[in-house]
Design a protein around this nucleic acid. Structure first.
Length: 573
DNA sequence: AGTTCGAGCGCC
DNA sequence: AAAGGGCGCTCGAACT
């Protein structure tokens, strides 16, 4: 590719922008040092200020969510941006200061020594309603204040453990925010009529009054008949009691536990649970709530999780059941290019650990688990996959441990890499992805939190014995934290790579009609005219290799995609 | 009436 | 075969 590594972070043709309350903006060109290289201009119209400067390579602004939807609504795209508040979040994390307010106003107060304002409360996900595409306006931030925070952030990048990687991380996540805003606007092509067909096939007729559809009612009757009395299959407590009356002890009604139970109610019960799930989470009311004018419009949020994976708000966009994917259909004359990174996590582990054996295996485009099994497990691909995933997820029992030992003999550096991360997590030390995204320290480490909240000091902040079902990073159980940290370095570094992939793919599609419409961790969907599909496929392959080089440096590791050009998402696999 | 929580399961 | 990492979403039950 002609795209040299420097372009993602270089300092040329940068302008800063701060929206004014009247729809205008203050803007100023920046020099290579990041400082103003000219007078501040007061523009009456923010959109026109950007539209009339197509040569600006990067816009520095407080918040992409504040500015970019307005530009897109007016048909204006920008090449790159630098999102100051996103960078603040990443830099605070890297500095081990996760809990501190992340707003530009807070950053400014820290810089000037003023009172640091707390962050506004997170918007509660409005259930059943489309969340607004436009962020509620924050208090106006004068351009000179934005520039002061930006300049300080430049210095903080220099103090990072790997300044070049940290610069790449903030640049890449800003690019991700542009992609997310564009995907939010494009929406995923969705055929409501096909969706209804699928629902009818699976669930049968709907009855008036909003009760269960026919098939669910039948299955509920079968369950009751098998128990010999009325049992509502959607109430776990009732099901557990019914099994107890039949002389069978189950701890829960989870599928994997019921599967080993020998009772005539199990089969219809499991079928009920599967269909019930589709009915409540992706049924007719979902369609009503989330699909408009042939598009499903979830709100993608780049970097919404601790590991850097994206989240979505609305409609459970990252959990669309496979059967429902039949409703994702390209527009007439258009195609979906569905691309899935093959065995991404072990390839990432090879790249970050620099394990010679694993890099050699990952240097081929062919099935990585097969290659591992040929070397370690005499051709048993299933065992190889379990061993690798066990190493990444922190498996603690069962055959996985035996397989892990075999893996360790053959790929010692790779296993040592995740073992080291796990130990660091257990000991409460900071753990970072390859580019420098940093896992929060345990909750107990934030000593100042209680004082700020004014809690009585004699009350224990957290019951130490059991901390319920907290996520791993927040848990006070060292083993849970170890498992989290082990996974964090791999999953998070994969998320680093994915940001660079999206940025490269967006650039490659810049002059096409093709649109990125979906992204799910290691899978991307591009919606494009049929005649562009070949170019898009090519672009994905090149973007993947470029992302690998930019993220991890020169390694032999390849990042192949399995790509399908289809009219319907369900036909991709 | 509204909010929180646990259970369960969808995706990776 | 066994049940680990990250999420979002929905329900009913249990609370304020």
């Amino acid at each position: 590719m002609s795209d040299p590594p420097a372009t993602l972070t270089d300092m040329t043709d940068r302008w800063a922008l701060s929206p004014a309350e009247d729809g205008g903006a203050e803007i100023v060109p920046l020099g290579r040092d990041g400082l103003p290289a000219g007078p501040v201009l007061r523009e009456p119209d923010l959109v026109e200020a950007v539209r009339s400067r197509p040569d600006v390579a990067r816009w520095v602004w407080r918040s992409t969510a504040e500015v970019y939807p307005r530009l897109l609504a007016a048909g204006v795209r920008v090449e790159r941006c630098y999102d100051v508040e996103d960078a603040e979040t990443l830099l605070l994390g890297h500095e081990g200061r996760h809990g501190e307010p992340r707003s530009a106003a807070a950053a400014l107060a820290r810089l000037r020594g003023g009172q640091v304002p707390p962050d506004p409360p997170q918007r509660p996900a409005a259930p059943g309603a489309q969340s607004p595409l436009f962020e509620p306006p924050a208090a106006h931030l004068p351009l000179e204040d934005l520039l002061a925070v930006y300049a300080e952030q430049q210095r903080r990048h220099e103090r990072a453990e790997h300044p070049d990687r940290m610069r790449l991380l903030t640049a890449a996540e800003s690019a991700g925010m542009l992609v997310a805003a564009e995907m939010n606007r494009a929406g995923l092509p969705w055929r409501a009529d096909v969706h209804r067909e699928v629902l009818h096939e699976l669930l049968g007729e709907r009855y008036a009054g909003g009760g269960e559809p026919r098939r669910l009612a039948e299955l509920a009757d079968e369950v009751s008949a098998a128990f010999g009395h009325r049992v509502r299959p959607d109430l776990p407590a009732e099901v557990i009691k019914a099994f107890a009356r039949a002389g069978i002890t189950v701890r829960s009604t989870r599928r994997w536990e019921l599967e080993s139970v020998d009772h005539p109610a199990v089969k219809p019960l499991l079928e009920y649970k599967k269909l019930y799930r589709i009915w409540v989470a992706h049924g007719w009311s979902w369609l009503q709530d989330w699909v408009r004018e042939g598009r499903f419009r979830p709100e993608f949020l780049a970097g919404g999780t601790v590991t850097g994976r994206w989240v979505t708000h609305g409609g459970g966009a990252l959990q669309i059941p496979r059967v429902i994917r039949r409703a994702v259909v390209a527009d007439p004359g258009w195609r979906l290019v569905v691309a899935d990174a093959a065995q991404l996590e072990p390839r990432v582990l090879a790249a970050i650990s620099r394990d010679p054996g694993l890099m050699e295996v990952a240097s081929r485009e062919s099935d990585l688990y097969q290659a591992v099994s040929d070397r370690v497990f005499s051709g048993d691909r299933t065992r190889a996959k379990l061993a690798v995933l066990g190493a990444v997820y922190g498996q603690t029992s069962g055959d996985g441990l035996k397989n892990l030992a075999a893996l360790r003999r053959r790929f010692p550096r790779a296993v040592a890499y995740v073992d080291d991360a796990a130990r660091a997590g257990e000991e409460g030390r900071l753990v970072r992805t390859w580019l420098g995204r940093t896992c929060p320290p345990p909750a107990g480490r934030r000593e100042d939190a209680d004082e700020e909240a004014g809690l009585p000091q004699d009350a224990p902040a957290v019951p130490p014995a059991s901390d319920g079902w907290m996520p791993g990073y927040a848990s006070t159980d060292p083993r849970a934290r170890g498992r989290f940290a082990r996974n964090f370095v791999v999953q998070g570094s994969a998320a680093d790579w994915a940001l660079l992939l999206l940025a490269a793919l967006r650039r490659a599609c810049w002059d096409m009609a093709a649109e990125l419409v979906f992204f799910q961790h290691d899978e991307v969907i591009v919606h494009c005219p049929q005649e562009e599909a070949g170019r898009v496929v090519e672009a994905i392959g090149q973007a993947a290799e470029l992302a690998g080089r930019l993220t991890f440096g020169e390694t032999p590791v390849r990042f192949p995609f399995t790509t399908a050009v289809v009219e319907c998402y369900a036909d991709a696999k």
